[in-house]
Amino acid sequence: MNIFRLAGDMTHLASVLVLLLKIHTIKSCAGVSLKTQELYALVFATRYLDIVTDFISVYNTVMKLIFLGSSFSIVWYIRHHRVVRRSYDKDQDTFRHYLLMIPCMLLALFVHEKFTFKEVMWTFSLYLEAVAILPQLVLLQRTRNIDNLTGQYVFLLGAYRGLYIFNWIYRYFTEPHFVHWITWIAGVVQTLLYADFFYYYFESWKNNVRLQLPA
């Protein structure tokens, strides 16, 4: 484990905690895309099928459990919590899941490292994670006022992806035979989707004004 990987995982963890903090303490999910959260729950459910078959480390297993547990509980909160669900922007969050899920599944069936159930599902989760943020970005663009916690949540998610790229560069030079084209390309695509958001995030931070994405 290198410093970039650890920093990436911690940023990812922080993003989830920020979102849970908003939902649990403020009892609001305004500006949060349920579509994106459902896609993440699916990403983790399909990626971590190996949680019962392969043991890598205690750290690995614990983190997997946290990401699975948090993503499903966030979905539960937005859908079913008596108070939280009332703040959900249903009319604005209209992105259709299947437009992302079906192409990712087809791609995973044709482009993968090994044709086994677990491996295809794992590859599907990589492709889906790369684009899962799109409903959230669309929602942010429609929401005129983005609150601090939602902005930080998206920023931390983007930072996590960026740090993983540094982790791969580091591993490429330090570990023999560390070549994972599918992971790398999906990861770079995912990070690029945040480029526009990052630009406006830093602008608003620099000028000390509320974050707003242009329509």
Partner: peptide, 10 residues
């Protein structure tokens, strides 16, 4: 190349 223990990243 494949890693012996499967995927070690999250």
């Amino acid at each position: 190349m494949e890693q012996p223990q499967g995927h070690d990243e999250l």
